[in-house]
Amino acid sequence: MKEEQLDKKIASFAPLAAGGISKGVKVFAPATVANLVCGFDVLGMALHRPQDLMSVRLRDEPGIVIQHTDGYQLPVEPEKNVAGAALLAMLEEVKEPPGFDITIDKRIKPGSGLGSSAASSAGVVVAANHLLGNIFSNEDLVRFAMNGEKVASGVKHADNIAPAIYGGITLIRSIFPLDIVQLSAPPLYVTVVHPQIEVRTSDARQILRKEVKLKDAIRQWGNIAGLVAGFMKNDYSLIGRSLEDVIIEPVRSMLIPGFDEVKKNSKEAGALGGGISGSGPSIFMLSREESTAQQVEYVMTEVYVKLGIDFKTYVTTISYDGVKVLEDNE
């Protein structure tokens, strides 16, 4: 960022630090579905449920203090915590940065495949930006929050971060430089089943093939283009036909017990299609009608009851708000 831009932004921050508009905010940070089957690392979608709750407040002295109220035993050192890493990246571009107290009530289970790390990373930068007088753009916030994803998985990726910040469905055309495209979509219901096992994103990346056959790449490109076109044309049939992954899913699905049966039974129940949410183990399905989404939930439940694996389900919709900010002046 250019020096003159920083000067301008810090000038707008000064009255807030002096005790004016707001000392603290609470934010709801949404779960997200990354990849959307065929769009590995380039497509993502924000959900209304579940959501993390975070409180971010300005401190009277420099430094970042993090506490969790969720019992997941996540690290609280800023450099090792995804929210801390994202906020540190932001504060590198702020002259005389203030300190922050961060309290995280994580309701999106880590390792669920529902963008748990992205929710913390996106939530903290949106909250801090609000307290600084909204001096950074959404694209800047994605750039900062990607540092949290690097802590979580070893790789900077934005397919969860972008929808968490922008809301709705997003396409990451490019990471370097960032080029984020917001996509329209027809009304859709999302059914998610989260079998209570953990699949670490870093582990799920390690098993991927390093080379892809040209015929598979061509088929995948067609599906990605078809899915984007289906969203923008409100074409449910095209959306359903395009929810196919010939590269990532055949490998990662082996880590998820019951995956093939869930997918088969969900489509028979009327779902348009779906697949692995992020790196798993959660599985999502898209439906045109709420009644179909509820029937999909039922058949997902049947599979995991039969397997004897604990699970959690959600029937929800696309969140077009992204991270939601609430004033907290306590």
Rank of each mutant, 00 (worst) to 15 (best):
I248L: 12
D41W: 12
R57Q: 09
L53D: 05
R252P: 05
T313C: 14
G308N: 09
T170C: 15
L74N: 01
E96V: 05
Y314P: 09
V192M: 04
V124M: 08
D235N: 14
F28P: 00
G99L: 06
P110N: 01
S237K: 15
A17V: 10
I247H: 06
F284C: 11
V305L: 11
V193T: 12
A89R: 15
M285G: 01
V315N: 11
L58Q: 05
I283P: 05
R173C: 13
N81H: 00
P257L: 07
K26D: 13
K312H: 11
S184Y: 06
A122H: 12
K306C: 09
R288F: 06
G167T: 07
N160W: 10
S137L: 13
E79V: 10
S287T: 13
E77F: 02
L141D: 10
G230D: 03
V25L: 02
V199E: 00
D310N: 14
A11T: 11
T313R: 12
L238H: 09
V246D: 09
I247G: 03
G274T: 01
L43R: 01
I256W: 03
L183V: 08
R173T: 08
R107H: 14
D328H: 13
C38A: 13
V262N: 09
A85I: 05
S287Q: 05
V315H: 02
V305G: 03
V296D: 01
L132Q: 10
N129F: 08
N35W: 05
V262W: 00
T103A: 06
N160D: 07
E249S: 06
K263S: 08
T32L: 03
G258S: 06
P97E: 05
V323R: 08
L286F: 15
A14E: 14
E96G: 00
I66D: 00
G99I: 01
L114P: 05
